[in-house]
Amino acid sequence: MSSARYNKPSASNARRGSKRITRVAAHRREAGRAWHRLWEAPAATLVTVLIIAIALLLPSLLLSLQHALTGGLHELQSEASLSVYLQADTHPDSASQVSERILTMEVVAAVATISPSEALAQLAIDTGLGDTLDALGSNPLPFTLVVQIDDARNGNDDLNSVAQAVASEIRGLEHVESVVVDGEWLRRLDALTNVLTRATQLLAILVAVGLLTAIGNTIRLAVEQRRDEIRVSKLIGASDSTIARPFLYTGLMLGLMGGLLTWGLQVLVVGLVSLEVGQFLALYNADAANPAVERGLNITQLGLDALILGLIGAGIGWVAAFFSCRRAIQACEP
């Protein structure tokens, strides 16, 4: 390999006095050459970069959508609460006993008691059916206890399962008619997010395979174009790895530029869409700041995203170049 060659003392006397190129300088030269070659055919290069960027954009956008959703979900789920309905004829004293009993449970932060009359008044306001409700004569509503789950004491456990556990414990208490865990829809949305995650992962794999093929093909064509040079270089004693180096840099640079362009497009798209996402989350009473907007405005996060996308692109480009050019170079036998 090249490292062995660089270190091996040359047999020839005349070579001994000659200045050897350092590995860093050699790599810089190959990289410079690769960069130069890329812009010998600017249109083809730009098209390739655009293809890479658009292909990467789809899973990347899905990923940030999923991040935004899980971020929003987390905000909502941290307010998990239970509605405990007591039996219709429960005495107010019994109600406060149940309330105190629940309050002793470890994960319960607060219990609010809504008396039947309060509930009826609220219902009248909410529905505008005050007159109709008055006509009922007696109040059919039971005592309601709203139990707030303590998020801090919950630790890493899934809030939902904690809520379910508390609910079944409360169901065993005297005077309790039924317990409803609020936010059933949250769990459905959560499941949907999981589906989204799976889809994103699958899509990312497909895109990676597609990009490997596309970049690999570009590199193979580049090798074909330099057949003569490769043949002559081999005759003169260039090793396959020496010949491959500029092509590896080409793949790396194409991928890197594609990745960075993906980032640029993503910032654009997220910026345009984030307002709508904010409105969407506001519909579900998420008073927390819109995670997408937060992400978009965070400079550190922006830089990190660019770095990650650039690295992913560069990695895919390098791997594609590695496999395709090795075969193509071997095929150029002198």
């Binding site: 060659r5 660089y6 070579r15 000659s18 200045k19 050897r20 190129i21 270089s233 003169i236 020496t242």
Partner: peptide, 14 residues
């Protein structure tokens, strides 16, 4: 200069 380059010599220095 190609053979010099291939054997790891710096063409500019040589």
């Amino acid at each position: 200069a190609l053979p010099l380059e291939i054997s790891g010599l710096d063409p500019r220095e040589n």
